[in-house]
Amino acid sequence: MLRLSFATGTEPGKWFTRFRDRTAHGRLLTTDSEDPLAELLDARADLALARLPDPRVTGDYHVVELYRESPGIALPKDSELTLLDRVSSADIEGEIVNWRTPADGLIDIPAVREGLQVVAANVGVVIAPRPLIRVLSRKQIEHRDFVGDVPATHIALVWRKTDDSGGIQDFVGIAKGRTPNSSRQVAPKRSAREKALAKQERRAGAAGVEKRARKTRRR
């Protein structure tokens, strides 16, 4: 069994499906967490899909960066700023900023959530990773890309070097785009019945092709 904790604001469902369908590592137990690294540090998870930077990630861990998150801004639904595709620092001069990504890049999800509640009440803005804003926003909130002096955040897979395993390596490969035909991936074993059904399907497909070919020749 592989235990994976993933950060709020990420949507790794397609990777979970591919891991279950393509590999034979047993059960995949997943948890949506505001702090997946805490679960990794406490050994409640084998692998974390985490938001970086984070000073708790030391040389004892493997880190595979997957993608960079776009900075975003949350706006009241009726704000004139929603007319813009991208909002800059100059555009929000005079606005109340309920929360913004700090200089160290650390994202305080409870604080972001609290700030969004104020935005939903038609007061001020929140600047944070846009994928996180998208997940946490209510109907009264719109979000846009933010162009300004905001530290970048990244989503990465993190795990203890001492816990490296085939299951972890296969999940990392899938998240990085490894195809089902990769020789590095452990394919799921099929029962004799599954193999027989697959053989029947191949024969039926071949027969169908031949039948259509005969019809074409008669025309």
Rank of each mutant, 00 (worst) to 15 (best):
A7E: 12
A24H: 13
S137F: 10
F6Q: 00
G148E: 07
F19C: 05
E39Y: 14
L29Q: 07
R3F: 09
L52I: 14
R86G: 03
A45Q: 07
A196G: 06
Y67D: 13
G72R: 07
P71D: 11
G124M: 09
I73S: 13
L2G: 13
A198S: 08
Q200H: 07
G9V: 04
A120E: 15
D104W: 11
I107C: 04
I92M: 01
V150D: 11
K189E: 15
I96K: 01
E194F: 06
K189S: 12
F146A: 08
L75C: 03
D54F: 12
I141H: 03
R178F: 09
Y67N: 09
T8Y: 07
I109H: 00
T58S: 14
A111H: 06
G148N: 06
A152H: 07
D32E: 13
R217N: 02
D42V: 05
V172I: 01
L132A: 01
I168M: 05
V209W: 02
K199F: 15
A128V: 00
P180W: 06
R20I: 07
I141E: 05
V57G: 08
D164Q: 10
P36W: 08
S182C: 03
I155D: 14
K199R: 12
L136W: 00
A152P: 08
P36L: 05
A196W: 15
T101F: 03
I141T: 12
L136D: 14
S183A: 11
A50R: 03
L40A: 02
T17E: 13
L136F: 08
L66R: 06
A187K: 15
V123L: 04
T31V: 15
F16K: 00
R219G: 10
V158P: 08
I133C: 07
I141D: 04
D85P: 10
Q185N: 07
L28H: 01
